[in-house]
Nucleic acid binder design. Structure first.
Lengths: 237, 237
DNA sequence: CGCCTATTTGACGTGACTCAACTCCCGTGG
DNA sequence: CCACGGGAGTTGAGTCACGTCAAATAGGCG
């Protein structure tokens, strides 16, 4: 699960739930950002909400000493900008060629007024983002290198289109800054997982997962609890 | 800033903003939890929203291997339970003697229906929580022991009643599990800060901050951007 | 006073970081 | 078609910050 929250994953689980928010963007023109370009910078006035049509985006923040931290990765279907106040608290950069649509916050707000049920989707989205952040904090504070990489692969595997294949369009330093490691340790850990027979290199930015269960065992995940939409869930929405 | 989001801090900045949500609890009876008692456990059905009247609470999650992670600390004025779906994603435990009020989610929802402006306060609260989580991820992934402890002291200093004094009602292992360190490293780092003349031991669970600026320098904080309530902020609320 | 827990301090081990060399891949241009 | 260049990735050797284990000390409370 991305630390930014992955709307697509949510909408797969509850098909009729989140499409509404994304449908708002269909009337907006599609724009292109080339690999490496920034959609916006950390600290910019937060004027727009974005909807990714295709490609991959990284979300990053910087420490005073220049160290970079990657909060998460976004892909087709994801939204950016729901959780801001007046300024973006992080930058968004295209990993590869990205197509996206954008809407001014003001227009977005007007759309919400017209269809108030979207507000509960906002809440739901923000809650997902909080849960994802907490999962990631747990990874960063308690997991070792192998557990981190396994967790990362597992998340990507679950949200990927092709079963058994994990694609990593970002470069190693993106993964490293996301998992709180160095590129060398990421590389060594991936090699170790290949030697253990848990994954296989498939293409330049792709691995085949030989054994999902081994991966899960090595990920040392927290206990999961059912949190599906049910009686209790309608409350607060 | 607590990873759970600190409503009190917010309401100090925007006095008329968040009181509304908390006022809802005034008609509920006050309950007591003794030190060490759990308000609820990770995985419990999320039936109630809580409002802390006095005392301190820790919010924790567990990994499959039994390791504990503390997501944050809460104190008088804070709310718990706004960000849940059907189950609590973490447990809440009293650090000391805690007084609190609770309200069923259903009743809370009815109150929200009566006063829809509370929904924007919910959104605002969730956004604070996301920002705080991201700050904490940054700490966990990029900061060394000294920077972590300084950041922690600084957060506590800013939200504390008595200027220049930091109170740490929780035990060292709580701090350690919050900052992703061991109790020994926490202890050694505090000692080092005392030797450097940045803080002074005041009482058993209290330090005097000699130099706030040294503390800030050693915390290596990320750049901060104004994000105060302004024109752009009314959007989405 | 005596017990128990929290905390500090010390000695030592180690997993991940740093620095450095090397390889791989892919695009470019001769 | 191959030579070349440069960014990305891998691998190795050595170091260090923090973890682990163990012992000493300090408080709190009956």
């Amino acid at each position: 699960m991305s630390a930014i929250g992955n709307l697509r994953a949510v909408s797969e689980a509850y098909p009729c739930d989140e499409n509404g928010l994304r449908a708002l963007f269909l009337r907006q023109p599609s724009e292109i950002a080339e690999a490496g370009a920034a959609l916006f910078f950390e600290g910019d006035p937060a004027c727009h909400v974005f909807h990714l049509v295709s490609g991959n985006v990284r979300i990053c923040r910087f420490l005073a000493d220049g160290h970079r931290f990657i909060i998460g990765f976004l892909r087709a279907g994801d939204l950016i900008g729901l959780s801001f106040r007046s300024r973006y608290m992080f930058g968004a950069e295209a990993i590869d060629r990205v197509a996206f649509r954008r809407m001014s916050k003001r227009m977005f707000e007007e759309e919400l007024q017209l269809a108030p049920e979207h507000r509960s989707q906002m809440l739901s989205h923000l809650r997902d983002e909080i849960t994802a952040s907490q999962d990631h904090m747990l990874l960063l504070s308690q997991k070792n290198a192998e557990e981190r990489v396994c967790t990362f692969l597992l998340d990507r595997l679950d949200s990927d289109d092709t079963p058994g294949l994990v694609s990593l369009p970002m470069i190693r330093s993106d993964i490293a800054d996301y998992l709180g490691m160095t590129i060398e340790t990421v590389s060594r850990t991936l090699t170790k997982l290949v030697l253990k027979g848990i994954i296989l290199p498939a293409a330049r930015h792709q691995f085949k997962v030989v054994s999902r269960s081994s991966l899960a065992r090595h990920a040392n995940e927290a206990n999961e609890y059912d949190d599906h939409q049910g009686e209790a869930l309608r409350v607060l929405q």
